[in-house]
Amino acid sequence: MDLLINHFWELTITGLAIGAVYALVALGYTMVYGVLRLINFAHSEVFMWGSFAAVWALMAVGAGKASGLGLAGYLVIGFVAAMTVSALIAMLLERVAYRPLRKRNSPPLIALISAIGASFALSELMGLRDKPLGWFNLENLRDYLGRPRENLPLPLQIQTKAVFPVFNYDVTNIDLIVLLSAIVMMVILDQFIRRSRLGRGIRAVAMDPEAAALMGINRDRVIRLTFLIGGIMAGAAAMMYLLKIGVTRYNAGFILGVKAFTAAVLGGIGNIRGALLGGFVLGVAENYGSALFGSQWKDVVAFLLLVVILLFRPTGLLGESLGKARA
């Protein structure tokens, strides 16, 4: 209890920073749920592949200790690499695991099974990444890949600095980078969905797919776009996660995916602003929880929160409505 009171502001700020990561990943779940009524179970692996892409891109450009303009350059490289790869994986997922099922009108349980299969295939593929080296005589790449079942650290090193104080806690530059970039991404997305023509298409399909089709909206294109946006957001989240946590591994997506899903449900699945709110709330709540019960119970707190929400308010804090978000 003392821990919670003494470190209240620290727990809040760092909770918001990790909550931003949850929020951006939650967008992928919530938007796909909005247009397809399907839990995109494999979205966590989209995130995980993005994090590896960022690490490898930064290794390739030889990132190390950096500050100032150099740091900004590395950050851009990391973000772009993660977002590109995540977007590609998300599109591939849609093409391979979901579209064939949609064409057959499969029941939701089957779609979920396909998604689970895709999720494990993607995660295990990363866990087996050193296998092809032997086949193609590329043993010299082994250091680059890292040990397949262990942590791969981010090569970029940022000197932690206090930027400005909030009550008794000094906000660090990393928290600030993470929070700022998350807010930028969120505002761009929110405005895109609300104001642009494509965003209106997404909302229309979420509201009523048949009426949207009658109004001349290409549903397949909207679905592809939704996966693309979800992937880009997951990629951005992956880079922020690396800045905050420092390492990634082949199964990093699993826990994070369940938490992001919790965030989406917390805010009201299908609701974009809800997912953002849910992410921040979850990040802060689990930090408070770990201060109260000990940090080893952090994940348990998040899971229990999910069960409690589903029991008492299954529609979430802001209600389920991608379609109803008006311009």
């Binding site: 695991a97 064939p100 099922l101 499969s106 779609a111 299969g117 999720s119 494990f120 295990e124 087996l128």
Partner: peptide, 15 residues
């Protein structure tokens, strides 16, 4: 690679 194969198998069967 069995969990990878099971993943692929699940996906292929679902489809």
């Amino acid at each position: 690679g069995r969990f990878f194969l099971f993943g692929i198998l699940l996906m292929a069967l679902a489809i």
